[in-house]
Amino acid sequence: MEITVKLNGRSVSALIEPDLLLIDFLRAQGCLSVKRGCETANCGLCTVLMDDVPVLSCSVLAARAHGHSITTLEGLQTEAADFVGFIADQGAEQCGFCNPGFVMNTIALLRENPDPTDDEIRAYLAGNLCRCSGYEGQLRGIRNYLNSRKG
């Protein structure tokens, strides 16, 4: 079947199998930031924005994305660059494999709630697993970023 998706602002059409998952479609389209860490919708590594809402691309059929807008980290390089330096300053990116999902969901959080408390940050990002950092450095990085925005 054929689908047309607005991928990172660009209209993309492709012939796909009905059971192709969005994550695999996106990686085939060259969006290598989208990672898979599990098969059970638990890790959050594959987070992308579908019509600006963060979803697990491992659990969405590519067919379902037809007619919708999909944003991956490839499409948010400028918006992300502002923020990720603060994570780098903490060394909290560590292995980096969970980073794209974490960055995407943090962007979604901050669009929804520009001035979150620490508890709101923890709650919103609870579905983004990270095995390296222990999360505390990610929290410090987000906090420093928010403080920098306040001037």
Partner: peptide, 21 residues
Amino acid sequence: HAVRKKDAMQLLLGKGVFVDD
């Protein structure tokens, strides 16, 4: 000194630097 990792931005911006990439 707390120097940023040399690969930090590549990782944080999701570049294709892992085996499957």
